[in-house]
Amino acid sequence: MLYAFLCYNNEDAVFSWTKEEDDAVMAGLHKVHQRLIEKKKFGPAVRLMPTTAATTLRKDTDPPLVLDGPYAETKEQLLGFYVIDCEDLEEALGVARDFAKANPGGAYEVRPLKLFLPGSFEK
């Protein structure tokens, strides 16, 4: 079974870490990653930019509505995510609109990545 691990923390605190503090946490995580990578168990992993970099496409309206900021409701639940390589936000929102046509209702929060680790699954 594949499991997703969704990481939650207080971004005010995390983004006020000094570089040394951040590096120390990442070095600790890296050791855990390394063990999983050696066992070919480590799938793609990402670290997101802060929520201030997010844009949300509400797709329960037609046409969908673009809002600045993260998804901030509680009436819907996180059901999945994509990682798509886009030139800029405009292209990313275009992709989100294409998804929305195929799958209306709910919302997509579009947030740039800070770090992408491709992982090491066996084919």
Binding site: D68, P112, K114
Partner: peptide, 15 residues
């Protein structure tokens, strides 16, 4: 990292 975040924010703003 800072450059990437700055560019992403500017991109958002210019929209």
């Amino acid at each position: 990292d800072m450059i990437a975040e700055g560019l992403a924010l500017l991109d958002k703003a210019l929209r």
